[in-house]
């Protein structure tokens, strides 16, 4: 569904991503992990068009998307969330999601349909669809949900979820992991999930790609990744957490 090959991103002389290649298969939840600064978020930014790719190719459903603007990529059915939630503070929670549903949808959506869709998606993630509700009053968990709702409102085929569980307590984490499973199950959305908290991630994903210092060091099913010596080394012996 998504084929990343030879993806390279340089910031001046610093190489944030070095010839990274991986594939996302339709219907799976792929975990993208790696220590801090390993290039996970940079990869997301390149794929979603927020950053210009230096070299390499990214094909989404057979189409080259390197060089496309973020809105064009969104219209093709590739949505993303941000690591640090970026709600539109001047809009209500409902408007935040409705604006995504109206402008970002893969199919033409009228304003009325967009509002309807927003109510639906907010229900799915468990936020109030009150047209007056102010996003600045949401806590960390609520903001993550809003972030997810906004991305889902665009009816994506592939969702890039960036560290959706950072800053959540264990209960919220479990329910958020469950949420991603439901997103795949009920909406049929393929997911690439970047996450720091690996114990949770390992239980949900089908496959894992591991980045370290901008390079792919391992790829495979969670059980094999947890035993991979290079991964353990990269994580400075976090084997306990992985298992």
């Amino acid at each position: 569904m998504l084929t990343v090959s030879g993806l390279t991103k340089r910031f001046g002389g610093f190489i944030a991503l070095n010839k990274v290649s991986f594939e996302v298969i339709e219907g799976e939840i792929l975990g993208l992990i790696g220590p801090n600064g390993s290039g996970k978020t940079t990869a997301f930014n390149c794929i979603s068009g927020a950053l210009a790719t230096s070299e390499g190719s990214i094909r989404f459903q057979g189409e080259e998307i390197v060089g496309m603007t973020p809105d064009a990529i969104c219209h093709r059915g590739l949505a993303r969330t941000f690591q640090i939630p970026r709600p539109f503070r001047k809009l209500s929670i409902l408007e935040n999601v409705a604006v995504a549903a109206h402008f970002g949808a893969t199919v033409r959506t009228s304003e009325a349909e967009a509002r309807h869709r927003a109510v639906e998606v907010l229900g799915l993630v468990g936020l109030p669809a009150d047209p007056e509700a102010d996003p600045t009053l949401l806590g960390a968990g609520g903001l993550k949900k809003l972030e997810l709702a906004r991305a889902l409102a665009t009816r994506p085929k592939l969702l890039l979820a960036d560290e959706s569980l950072g800053g959540l307590d264990p209960t919220e984490m479990a329910s958020a992991a469950d949420m991603l499973r439901r997103v795949r199950g009920e909406l049929g959305v393929t997911i690439v999930w970047v996450e720091h908290i690996m114990a949770t991630l390992m239980r949900v994903v089908d496959r894992v790609v591991v980045l370290d210092h901008g390079e792919k060091i391992a790829e495979g099913p969670p059980a094999a990744i947890a035993e991979d010596p290079r991964v353990i080394e990269a994580y400075l012996g976090e084997k306990v957490v992985l298992a």
Binding site: S48, A50, T69, K90, A114
Partner: peptide
Amino acid sequence: RSMARAAMEAIGEDETAAASVGIHV
């Protein structure tokens, strides 16, 4: 009253996030 206002508010606040939800900034 239009959705264009919401889009403009979004752009005014955060162009990257606005573009990521499909708004042609």
